[in-house]
């Protein structure tokens, strides 16, 4: 069965590129425009991976990661975050919140997919 990936990003173009790339690879894609919006998808349905931006209005990525980790249904699903900042501080903050890994923007589709294959198959 196709894996379901939830993308959370407030940028339309990033969402589109990610969604398109993933759908091309045969993944099911759900989208949220920010953390708060993303929560509506976390309703018990099977989600195999979450890819989230860190900077977002309403609820930012770190907050979202913490939220997901607190939900029994999703406490162990892989979470990748997108970041332009390659600084360790932000990365560590997200990792401490429970993220599985990260993708550094800007990225090309191949890079995105290779990061995904690190965490789901």
């Amino acid at each position: 069965m196709a894996k379901t990936i939830l993308i959370v990003d407030d940028s339309d173009s990033i969402r589109e590129v990610v969604r398109f790339t993933l759908e091309n690879e045969g993944y099911n894609v759900l989208v949220g425009v920010d953390g708060k919006d993303a929560l509506k998808h976390l309703n018990g349905q099977t989600i195999d991976l979450v890819i989230t931006d860190l900077h977002m209005p309403e609820m930012d990525g770190i907050e979202l990661i913490k939220h997901i980790r607190a939900m029994p249904d999703y406490e162990r699903i892989p979470i990748l975050f997108l970041t332009t900042e390659s600084q360790t501080a932000k990365k560590m903050e997200a990792k401490d919140a429970g993220a599985t890994g990260w993708i550094i923007k800007p990225f090309v589709p191949a890079k995105l997919l290779s990061a995904i294959t690190k965490v789901i198959r």
Binding site: E75, R76, T100, S114, V119
Partner: peptide
């Protein structure tokens, strides 16, 4: 390691 959603098998595969 599983706590963060990591599956080591995938890393080995990669």
């Amino acid at each position: 390691i599983f706590k963060n959603g990591t599956n080591p098998i995938y890393l080995l595969d990669e």
